[in-house]
């Protein structure tokens, strides 16, 4: 099935692209997708501790099962002021 993954800020820099269209297996969980992405993009793995996820514009824990046409967003929470 096809899904879209969007990257923001430092995560976008780590991947070198703003978004990726991907084909993934039925029944894949969001956290499994993250493991796959971190395998493909080592710089993304370095940011794994500082990553917030959303699925179809809703905050996501990683446990969600992906569906055809889903849109995932990956971004860093920030601290400065």
């Amino acid at each position: 099935m096809k899904i879209k993954v969007k990257f923001f800020s430092s995560h976008r820099e780590a991947v070198g692209r703003s978004e990726i269209n991907m084909k993934v297996d039925e029944g894949m969980r969001l956290k499994e997708l993250m493991d796959m992405l971190m395998g493909s993009y080592p710089k993304l793995k370095k940011l794994s501790e500082y990553t917030v996820l959303s699925l179809n514009h809703r905050y996501a824990s990683g446990e969600e099962i992906l569906k055809e046409g889903d849109e995932v967003a990956i971004f860093p929470p920030v601290e400065g002021g």
Binding site: S9, H57, A73
Partner: peptide, 13 residues
């Protein structure tokens, strides 16, 4: 989530 480098944003519920 605001990204001023590429002027993109995301609004998450």
């Amino acid at each position: 989530i605001y990204d001023g480098k590429f002027f993109s944003y995301e609004l998450i519920e």
